[in-house]
Design a protein around this nucleic acid. Structure first.
Lengths: 328, 328
DNA sequence: AAATTTGATGCAAACGTTTGCGGAATTGTT
DNA sequence: AACAATTCCGCAAACGTTTGCATCAAATTT
């Protein structure tokens, strides 16, 4: 372990440790000549400051924690990529932990974050997390917590979310404008807040405009289930299918391929998505973009605001966007 | 900042810091009664040991670094998930950094790892990284470095790789067994070692068996390019298309969908993949699995071996596996 | 020439742990 | 009753930094 320390440099140069420390960070008290000597030796010795010592001394870890159900997910991927990018640019490191939808692992991960004295936390809670006390406790310790995507209903915390209602409304509007007559709406797990919001907004929009659109809705909590439901509802001859998420879309598209249906000739397709899945098909699927990347950027700026002293509790929403494919 | 420390506990209990420290970790020198008192107070005060102080004192960070070109990638995702899982289970934390294929960012990330005194590093170098000296320097400092996936040609380092040649050979064998006559093989960026290996193994196998199979090969370095090439080569009426990677597969499938071709009726498809993409289509695409997850597990065990004192330099290869879809 | 300012550096404490060693009180052994 | 062993605990140094304050020589001012 060939670790260079300030002490080692100071001994070689016959200077004190504090002089080395100051020289290395360009403190005006130190003469240029000394600075140069120090910097030179430091680079040849491959000196790297010990982050642990610095954090200990300054109690500023420059480290964010990020807890997410799974990193193998198109949406979270994009979110993480954005946060990682901004963190690095701002001199922060990121500790990424996945909870696998297990509240116990979530607690373990949280503990890890605390032990590492993170400066702030980004967290997407698992669906089964009922007790968010441990997270709020961080806040009491002046460690900002930004909840994202799946957020607690509690409203005394900072949240950044996808625009669930708006995105569903936008999708519905597109469908209406295209003069569709019979729509199959496939939604996710019914007990998720996200699902309830999207379902409400979608059916409300479809119905309120007196469009005489016939709407069939159902819930699938996995791709396989979506596939089965699509197969079933196909008998009712919808002219359009709306998918609440990528997970659903993939199931739907498998049925469409299996049945050899033409898109949009035989059936139109529209989905809400981060953008990855819609681009896998031909024609590309028209979708309302709810970008994980944008959400990540938003979360980061919210974090920086908190660190900047803002105690303003807010719930932010990432803008969404219609991206036209050729599927409708 | 309501941080409980050993000192605080010791003052409340009228004991010394060392006693608290020992009590908390079940040291035999401490009486059961004291231990109980200490543990009790520690939990009510939400004591969490300061990892920075521990690392500084013990110079053992229990932290791994992981540098990867991009985390938004099906293969790396799976790899990361595996490493993250094993790390947590073994009491390690993981610092994940993405280099965006930029050698400069790679260096920055490496520096971050060094400053945080990581215990070991997993790294997939970017294609443009020519100088791996900085990585080898870590090794000299007794910090194990496990190269994965895209590894340097230098053979004095630990590597874990996908079985490039074998996977391509397996795919070719499947094609031969299915008595295909005219095969289009689409490969990736020609200057990558991986591509060269796969191309060599594939065409060698196809040709050597005197199968009279007609083989057309080409190189695409993006999905869009693959799409264009597929479109072009379709005129030559291949009965089978082999894709070297997911990236290629997606482009190929878009053309197949666009042309309304039936799989496997009009054309057979086989690919090498981590498994995500092939399952998006119907019928599911037959593929040779090169699992990021398995590779992650392998990398982790290799890391643990190094930390266990093994100085044995080795290049490991993850096994691969034929997964039958219905596309051939 | 004395006093003051300026410039460059060093001292030492602190951050929160771990751990070798030493010490006092209790218990056990002849 | 004298001694040895055991049990339980505290002292203090060390890990590598940062930083307020002190120091001291040289340069400047009076």
């Amino acid at each position: 372990m060939n670790n260079t320390t300030l002490k080692k440099i100071s001994e070689i140069l016959g200077l004190s440790i504090s002089t080395i420390s100051r020289a290395l960070k360009g403190h005006p008290d130190i003469s240029d000549k000394t600075k140069q000597r120090v910097v030179e030796l430091a680079t040849t010795l491959d000196y790297e400051p010990n982050a642990n010592a610095i954090n200990l001394r300054t109690s500023n870890s420059k480290l964010f924690g990020l807890i997410v159900p799974s990193i193998s997910n198109w949406f979270y991927n994009a979110f993480i990529a954005a946060v990682e990018e901004d963190s690095r640019r701002n001199g922060y490191s990121l500790m990424i932990l996945q909870s696998s939808d297990d509240p116990a692992i979530e607690i373990t991960n949280l503990k890890l974050c605390r032990q590492n004295r993170i400066t702030g936390l980004f967290v997407c809670i698992s669906p089964d997390t009922t007790n968010i006390e441990p997270f709020l406790k961080l806040k009491e310790m002046d460690i900002p917590v930004i909840f994202f995507d799946k957020v607690p209903e509690n409203n005394n915390c900072n949240k950044v979310c996808v625009a669930d209602s708006l995105s569903a409304t936008m999708a519905a509007t597109v469908i209406i404008n295209k003069k569709k007559k019979k729509v199959l709406g496939l939604f996710g797990n019914a007990h998720l807040l996200m699902t309830r919001k999207r379902l409400a907004a979608f059916s409300e929009t479809i119905n309120e405009k007196l469009t005489k659109i016939k709407l069939i809705t159902d819930h699938a909590s996995s791709t396989a289930e979506a596939e089965a439901l699509m197969l079933k509802h196909l008998k009712e001859k919808p002219d359009t299918v709306f998918c609440m998420s990528d997970e659903i879309l993939v199931g739907v598209m498998k049925v469409i391929q299996r049945k050899g249906l033409a898109v949009p000739g035989d059936i139109g397709v529209i989905t809400i998505s981060n953008g990855t899945a819609p681009k896998l098909y031909h024609p590309e699927i028209t979708y309302i973009e709810t970008s994980g990347y944008k959400l990540g950027k938003l979360a980061f700026s919210s974090m920086m605001a908190c660190l900047g002293g803002s105690t303003f509790i807010q719930e932010l929403t990432a803008e969404c966007l219609l991206v036209e494919g050729g599927s409708l």
